[in-house]
């Protein structure tokens, strides 16, 4: 055991940095969540209120609405991005002319800065000046401008569409990598055994992609649950809170209304949900590792 003492020394700098930038903020958020803070930066005037902030967050109607939005946003974005990305990966997995070029083009959304993309899409979807609305009118699909973002019924769906566009290439790359590791010999064996293309896909390829699918979906779920940039830049949660999700509400509470105590309590709730998801993520990975 003594011989391992030096090992701790080697990881000490990393641990120190992590304590500074992760552990301390987490602890301070938790601490602050027990206080009512004044609507300014004079944190020394805070008043201890126990779990009152939590009660107010969990009891607020706006939070309930945002919770439903968060669920729809997270699940729909993940599911659609996965389906689209997997489809693209399957299409790109067989050789054809221009495959490399197409792969490059499909990758573009993923490598563009999220803020820049969100701004561009905000203009594309603009009801009066947007290209998409104008196209719909020019082709006679609609007689009047279409409100993508200024309509409480369509705003969340529009954001989800942009989000899916932004992250499906990630799925594509992950699944393409997975597809390329499907053992050729298994596919040949199945072919000799009499399996057609669809049966080979279902019996060989799909089971082989189990691990990479799981990792991809869980990473997407976490990223979307925390997905701040697109909703914030495109709508800021509006109109009338129709595209409000947890993370935009927290940001608004903390830095718009300067309610640090309340925002901290909200953050702790989000943190707990994320950690629960993380727990299942790690458990699923470890379980599969053991199994294989």
């Amino acid at each position: 055991m003594v011989r391992h003492r030096a090992d701790y020394l080697y990881v000490a700098p990393a641990v120190l940095v992590m304590v500074l930038v992760i552990a301390y903020p987490v602890w301070f958020t938790f601490y602050l969540s027990m206080f009512s803070t004044p609507p300014n930066l004079a944190l020394e005037d805070k008043i201890f209120v126990g779990l009152d902030n939590y009660a107010r967050i969990l009891g607020a109607d706006s939070v309930h609405e945002a919770s439903l939005n968060t669920l729809v946003w997270t699940v729909a974005s993940t599911a659609l991005a996965f389906v689209l990305g997997f489809g693209a990966a399957l299409a790109l997995n067989r050789p054809f002319r221009g495959r490399g070029l197409l792969r490059g083009i499909l990758l573009v959304p993923y490598v563009i800065s999220a803020v820049a993309a969100a701004y561009v899409w905000r203009w594309l979807l603009h009801s009066d000046l947007g290209v998409l609305s104008a196209l719909a009118m020019a082709t006679g699909l609609r007689s009047q401008p279409f409100n993508f973002l200024d309509n409480t019924d369509t705003v969340l769906a529009s954001l989800i569409m942009v989000n899916v566009w932004k992250e499906f290439p990630f799925v594509m790359i992950m699944m393409l990598a997975g597809l390329q590791t499907v053992p050729d010999q298994l596919l040949r064996a199945a072919q000799v055994d009499g399996a057609g293309p669809w049966q080979r896909f279902w019996h060989i390829t799909v089971p082989h992609l189990g691990n990479v699918s799981l990792v991809t979906v869980l990473l997407l779920l976490a990223a979307n649950f925390n997905g701040f940039t697109i909703p914030w830049v495109m709508t800021g949660g509006g109109p009338a809170g129709a595209s409000e999700i947890w993370i935009t509400q927290i940001y608004q509470l903390a830095f718009g209304r300067i309610r640090f105590g309340l925002a901290s309590a909200y953050s702790v709730i989000l943190f707990a949900v994320m950690m629960t998801m993380g727990y299942f993520y790690v458990r699923a990975l470890v379980g599969r590792d053991r199994a294989s």
Partner: peptide
């Protein structure tokens, strides 16, 4: 086959 090519999930 050389590597037996058994279906691993079955």
């Amino acid at each position: 086959f050389q590597n037996y090519a058994l279906y691993p999930n079955k």
